[in-house]
Design a protein around this nucleic acid. Sequence first.
DNA 1: TTTGTTAATTTCGTATTATGAAACTATATT
DNA 2: AATATAGTTTCATAATACGAAATTAACAAA
Lengths: 256, 256
Amino acid sequence: MEEKKTNPIQVSERIFHTIETLAHHGPMGLLDLSKELSLNKTTVHRILNSLICMDYVRQDPESLKYSLTYKFCGISAQILASNNVISLARPHLRKLAEQTGETVHLVQMDGTNAIYIDKVEASRSSVRLVSMVGKAIPLYCSGVGKAMLADMTDERIQSIWEKSSIRSLTEYTITELTQFQKIISAIRQNGYALDKEENELGVRCIAVSITAFHGNPPYAISVSAPRDRMSDSRILEIKDLILTTKENIQKNMGVI
Amino acid sequence: MEEKKTNPIQVSERIFHTIETLAHHGPMGLLDLSKELSLNKTTVHRILNSLICMDYVRQDPESLKYSLTYKFCGISAQILASNNVISLARPHLRKLAEQTGETVHLVQMDGTNAIYIDKVEASRSSVRLVSMVGKAIPLYCSGVGKAMLADMTDERIQSIWEKSSIRSLTEYTITELTQFQKIISAIRQNGYALDKEENELGVRCIAVSITAFHGNPPYAISVSAPRDRMSDSRILEIKDLILTTKENIQKNMGVI
DNA sequence: TTTGTTAATTTCGTATTATGAAACTATATT
DNA sequence: AATATAGTTTCATAATACGAAATTAACAAA
């Protein structure tokens, strides 16, 4: 039984709760915030002023509401810029997006989630959620997640399955381990994974893992499209393109 | 004389210094970090553990080095997603990128800086810095910055000029206020601003402001390209396209 | 104008909390 | 075996963050 250590700095916990709440709700007033956080309003006021001092929060002089500044985006940009896998994979993702005419994603495994670290939108693709980059998606219900899991041992997969909080996101989400294991074997045979509206209704995607080298975490790429543009026959076309892209990226990364 | 209030929470200051240092340096060991921050190593260790508790920092079990997690990118993504100007402008930026074949940026004014809040790369454009989004650039030495400044009063411009820390980033950077004011008048006449390698050698760009409505901050868009592809005659071609884009975005935003 | 209401801000005595010197552990190096 | 280097843990104490209460500000109703 894993027991999470308690946070050694009380304010730290409170500061980041404040930040996360602001990120989630958008601009908020002091009282709303303190109610939401179950903290004394003085405490929240002090925290906000501290964040304002450092330019992470700003208060609108009109409405007096507090909100996060783009300084967080600056930190995010630095983190992403230091990831050379992104710049390495980028040209290949572009080519794939052009070939398929659909949106292409690059994700990195992180705990029980996959995190979108890059995306290339094809010009004809429909407008989807802006700036997915940074968003997390559970491994068990995403094409990219399953593609990465298929590279791991069955024990590892089961351990991750148990740590995940399995929920039906759509009527197609797989929530039984035995069924999931069958799908994993299929992925191992085919070399690619599918997501048929398991995560979001109306969206299908095809994904392959990128075999990482030495200390790197697992990566995966995917091509996503509305169901109507992603028939079973279309999947077979894209399959070849995405597998070639995988080969090219791995060659470029120095994987044999 | 503006005196910055001292931070009302000591740890808060220290926590964000730690985060910023990690963002800048990448993975670091405890002693390196504590030297860099001029803090007791126990203090830094406690801060890091607090951040690890909340999953903002991870320690590599091999090298024992600490680094930031993608959780910051998640916060950044939420901030950007809540900005409806981005999704509103996106289709127009795409069209412009396609028409020009060059990289198009959307920025938002923030203090004495412009912040990149979106970008669309054209397929043929050369690979530049990955994920600029979130990065800040000074107003005085960027096309987008000058485009936004030209919309303001001369007093406001001077006040921002004085607050900025003017430095020559390249041999073409303008560092004299009188010369700068002449350029601003030219922008007001032409309706667009230029950046001829004032910010980065070899890169030229053409920019226009987006007139914002009610409480919104100023925005601007730009087309950037290597000097070779951005001759004076090419600028005249792009000028018409970017001015039309400006009109279209403003119509779409409800500005008359 | 006065009264009531709601929300943000400031003050200040005090309990709590973060601090950091020192001790400890682990690993590598001479 | 001794020395060096880096990370981790402990604990008495000084410093800090806490929050109840008072204050200010803006607005609405009587």
